[in-house]
Amino acid sequence: MYKRVDKNYRIVYNKKVQSHYFELKIKVGDVYKSCSPGQFFMIGVPGVFLRRPFGICDADDGEGGCVSFLYKVVGKGTKILSNIKSGMLQLLGPLGKGYDLEPLVNIIVCDNDACDNSNNVIVAGGTGIASIHFLASRLKNKSTLYYGAKSESDLLYLDNFRKLGWKVVLSTEDGSKGYKGYITDILSKQLKKRDTLFACGPTPMLKEILEIARKKNVLGFASLEEKMACGLGNCQGCAVKINRQNKMICKDGPVFKVEDIEL
C-alpha cells in the first residue's frame, strides 16, 4: 500500500530563488515515481530535534529521479537548512494523501443554464504555491491559477505556470503586483459553480475559500497544515475534524475534500 521510504539522500542543490525563498532539490531515484501532488516529506535538519514537513514542489526523472521542495526561511530549522549547500539529508516520504487528479464535476449531467465545461481552478496563498506548482503540472485541464501573497517579492514560479498553460491571476496585500488585497476577494467573484477547486495556503485563507465554495456549491480539495512531530500518524499532533471525525493531516490528508473540512 505505502511506498514511503526513510533514507539518506544526496542534495542536488539548495539555492535561493528569491528574497527568503529557497528551492531544495534531492536525488531520490525511483522514489520520485510514487510522489503525487499534495504529498510531503519529513526532512531532518541537523541541530533541531524534529524533522520538518515539506510539500513536494516538483518530482521528475532528471538526474535519475529527483524531488524538489520550496521553502521560506521563517525559523531556526529553515535558517539552518538554507545554509546547507551539499551533502546528505534524511528524508521520509512521500507521505500523506494528495489531490485527486480526476475531475469531480464532469460526470454531472449538464443542465440548460450551466452547460460550460468544468474548469480546474487552483488557488495558492504564500508558500502554498509549492504543492500547487506540482499539481499544476499534473492536471490535464489547465484553467486558472489564483495566487495571493504579501508582496511582489513573495510571488514565485509565475513563468512556469504560464508555460504550462495556466491563466494567472495575482494579488498582493501591498498592491505591488496584481490586485491589491486578498486573492479570495477575486475568487469570490470569479469562481463558477461547475469549477473544481484545488487550494493550498494559510488557514485563514482556506477558511475563506471553504466559505466561498460552500456558498457557490463548488466541489474541490484543500490542503491543510498543522504542527506535526512524526508525519506518520503516530504522535497524533495534527488532528483535524473532517466530517465530524478526528483525522490526521499527515496520514489521512493533508488534502481533504472541501465539503468535508471543518476549520
Binding site: F49, L50, E226, C235, C238, A239, V240
Partner: peptide
C-alpha cells in the same frame, strides 16, 4: 483529544 495546536518543538525535545 485536545484542540490544536497540540505540538510545539523545544530545544532538544517536544512539548505535546
Amino acid at each position: 483529544g485536545n484542540l490544536q495546536p497540540r505540538i510545539a518543538e523545544v530545544e532538544s525535545g517536544i512539548l505535546n
